[in-house]
Lab assay of single mutants.
Amino acid sequence: KLPPGWEKRMFANGTVYYFNHITNASQFERPSG
C-alpha cells in the first residue's frame, strides 16, 4: 500500500510512475512509508 496521497499511474507508453494528489509531486520510484 502506498503512503497517503500517492497513487500509481501510467503514461501512454506504459511507463509506470507515482503521483501524489496532495502535493502534486510525481516520481518513478515507489514512495516508501
Rank of each mutant, 00 (worst) to 15 (best):
T15S: 09
T15G: 08
G5P: 10
T15D: 14
F19K: 03
F11V: 06
K8N: 02
F28G: 07
Y17A: 03
I22Q: 09
S26Q: 13
Y18G: 00
F28W: 10
W6N: 00
N20F: 02
Y18L: 00
E7K: 04
Y18K: 00
Y17V: 09
H21Q: 11
R30I: 13
R9E: 01
R9S: 03
S26E: 10
G5M: 06
F28P: 08
N24I: 04
N20Y: 03
R9M: 11
F19H: 08
R30Y: 13
F19S: 02
E7S: 08
N20G: 01
A25F: 08
P4A: 11
T15V: 14
F28N: 09
S26P: 03
T23V: 04
G33Q: 13
E29N: 07
Q27I: 06
H21K: 12
Y17H: 05
N13F: 02
P3M: 05
K8P: 06
E7L: 06
T15E: 15
N20T: 00
G14M: 04
T15F: 08
F11A: 15
P31A: 01
K1M: 14
S32K: 10
Y17W: 08
G14H: 02
S26H: 12
G5I: 04
S32A: 11
T15P: 05
R30W: 13
N20L: 02
G33L: 14
R9G: 04
P3K: 03
T23K: 03
A12N: 10
A12T: 11
S32F: 12
F11M: 15
E29K: 05
Q27H: 04
K1T: 13
S32I: 14
E7Q: 07
F28R: 10
Q27S: 10
Q27G: 02
T15I: 13
P31E: 01
N13Q: 03
Y18S: 00
S26L: 15
P31M: 01
M10S: 11
F19L: 05
G33R: 09
P4Q: 10
R9H: 08
Q27D: 02
N24G: 15
Y17P: 01
T23Y: 05
G5F: 08
E29R: 04
N13A: 03
F11R: 10
S26K: 11
N24W: 05
F19R: 01
G14R: 01
R9W: 02
S26W: 15
P4K: 09
P4D: 12
N13W: 05
A12S: 11
P31I: 01
L2G: 02
R9V: 09
V16S: 07
R9N: 03
P31K: 01
T15A: 09
G5Y: 08
N13T: 05
S26V: 15
Y17F: 09
F28L: 14
K8H: 05
K1G: 14
T15N: 09
G14S: 03
T15H: 08
F11Y: 14
S32R: 09
P3Y: 04
G5R: 02
N24A: 10
P31L: 01
E29M: 06
N13L: 04
V16Q: 06
I22R: 07
T23M: 06
V16M: 07
L2E: 09
I22D: 10
P3T: 03
R9Q: 05
Q27K: 03
Y18M: 00
G14T: 02
Q27V: 08
N20M: 02
R9T: 04
F11W: 10
H21T: 15
H21L: 15
L2I: 06
Q27T: 09
N24V: 04
F28H: 08
Q27A: 06
F19W: 09
E29D: 11
K1N: 13
A12H: 10
W6S: 00
G14A: 03
K8S: 08
F28T: 12
N24M: 11
V16T: 09
V16Y: 11
Y17R: 02
G14D: 04
K1D: 15
F11K: 14
H21R: 10
L2V: 04
F19Y: 15
R9F: 06
K8R: 12
R30M: 12
T23W: 04
N13Y: 02
P3V: 02
A25W: 08
V16A: 07
S32W: 11
P31W: 01
S32H: 11
K1W: 13
A12D: 12
G33K: 10
Y18V: 00
P4E: 11
F11C: 15
N20P: 00
E7W: 03
W6D: 00
P4M: 10
K1V: 14
F28Q: 09
G33E: 14
A25T: 15
K1Q: 15
N20K: 00
S32G: 14
G14L: 04
S32N: 13
N13H: 04
V16D: 08
S26A: 12
Q27M: 08
M10G: 05
P31G: 01
A12F: 06
F28S: 10
G33W: 15
E29F: 07
A25Y: 08
K8I: 14
S32Y: 12
A25P: 00
T23P: 00
P31N: 01
P4L: 11
I22T: 09
S26M: 15
N24E: 10
Y17L: 06
V16G: 04
M10T: 13
N24P: 01
R9A: 05
A25S: 12
T23L: 07
K8Q: 12
A12L: 08
W6T: 00
T15W: 06
K1I: 14
T23G: 02
W6A: 00
I22W: 09
L2M: 08
N20V: 01
R30H: 14
N24D: 07
T15Q: 13
P3S: 05
E29S: 06
F19V: 07
L2T: 03
R30F: 15
K8F: 07
N20I: 02
V16N: 05
G33M: 14
H21Y: 15
E29T: 08
Y18H: 00
P3C: 07
F28A: 10
A25H: 13
W6R: 00
P31D: 01
M10K: 11
N24T: 07
R30V: 14
R30D: 12
A12V: 09
M10N: 07
H21M: 12
P4V: 10
P3H: 03
S32E: 14
M10L: 11
L2H: 01
Q27F: 04
F19Q: 04
W6I: 00
G33P: 13
K1Y: 12
Y18P: 02
I22Y: 11
V16I: 14
R9L: 10
E7P: 00
A25D: 10
P31H: 01
S26T: 15
G14I: 03
S26G: 07
H21P: 10
E7I: 09
R30T: 09
W6P: 00
V16L: 07
P4S: 09
R9D: 01
F11G: 13
T15K: 12
